[in-house]
């Protein structure tokens, strides 16, 4: 085995397919998007080089900043939801009855496709026939909210299924990490008289800190580029009240034929995500940090 691995040609042979795929499917498109972002282009005719005009326009585009604000709100909500997921996984990882069943229940939304989830929640939120409003009417609320039609609540109404959608994913990650905490440590702590709260906070949490950091990055970056449910459920409406950066990019590129500007939005989104990732790393950095992500 050592002999094989010391042969540079063989190493190259193993690495090359994945590397080529990565370059063709990831780096080339990113590079091209960056280039298109510097042109005025309807996606069909001639490309006209305009330098940083698109970015100048982006800086002054109130609709973009509004959707950026919505994306950041989603990121904050996702972060808060991580705390909830962590608590649920701690309970599940503790020896409670039916933990296995609950774990499966939480995992189900992850197995559904985004479009199915969107259809499901559109029915739940239906203004007259929806489960939600039927329930509210039956307990005596006369004018239940118009979940997806009211500009002041539509964004939060969509956050709920988004957070629900990813619950299983994060709970699974935390659950696996918690199961990896050595039993001896916990038993030792228990013998020393530590309460369950102390065990959770002082022993389990520090031991899975690396995993938590990864999930923070995943949740924040995932929120910034979020698209699916918003596209299907409201299409960014009404009147842009649920527009996020990715849906705005899509609209610019494919609906209004500003492919150049749409590319600029997409590239800016990429830069934003990189900066945020770097910031999160800086903030959560610690000396004994040995988990790389």
């Amino acid at each position: 085995m050592d002999k094989v691995m010391s042969n540079k040609k063989i190493i190259a042979l193993y690495v090359l397919p994945a590397f080529a795929l990565l370059v063709v499917l990831v780096y080339v498109p990113i590079f091209l998007t960056g280039y298109y972002g510097l042109t005025r282009w309807d996606g069909i005719g001639e490309r006209v080089w305009v330098g940083f005009d698109n970015y100048a326009r982006l800086m002054g585009d109130s609709m973009f900043w509004r959707s950026a604000y919505h994306s950041f709100l989603l990121a904050i909500f996702s972060l808060l939801s991580l705390v909830g997921y962590l608590i649920i996984s701690m309970i599940l990882a503790g020896k409670i009855k039916g933990a296995d069943l609950f774990r499966k229940i939480y995992l189900i939304p992850m197995l559904l496709s985004s479009v199915a989830i969107a259809q499901l929640w559109m029915r739940i939120y239906h203004p007259t026939n929806g489960v939600m409003n039927r329930l509210l009417t039956s307990i005596g609320i006369e004018n239940p909210p118009l979940w997806l039609a009211d500009t002041s609540i539509v964004l939060y109404a969509i956050f709920i299924p988004i957070i629900w959608q990813y619950a299983g994913f994060y709970i699974l990650i935390y659950y696996a990490a918690l199961k990896n905490v050595p039993n001896e440590l916990i038993e030792a702590a228990r013998i020393d008289g530590a309460s369950p709260w102390q065990i959770g906070y002082k022993i389990k949490l520090p031991l899975i800190m690396g995993v938590i950091k990864v999930t923070i990055v995943l949740a924040v970056v995932g929120s910034l580029k979020y698209f699916d449910l918003i596209y299907v459920m409201t299409d960014g409406g009404p009147n842009g009240a649920s527009e996020v950066m990715a849906s705005y990019m899509y609209k610019q590129a494919f609906r209004t034929y500003n492919f150049g500007y749409g590319s600029a939005v997409g590239f800016f989104l990429l830069l934003l995500a990189l900066v945020v990732t770097w910031l999160i790393r800086k903030v959560t950095e610690s000396k004994e940090d040995n988990v790389q992500y």
Binding site: P29, L270, A273
Partner: peptide, 10 residues
């Protein structure tokens, strides 16, 4: 990681 997540438009 970020780039993979962000394929988006490209």
């Amino acid at each position: 990681l970020a780039a993979t997540l962000l394929l988006g438009l490209a």
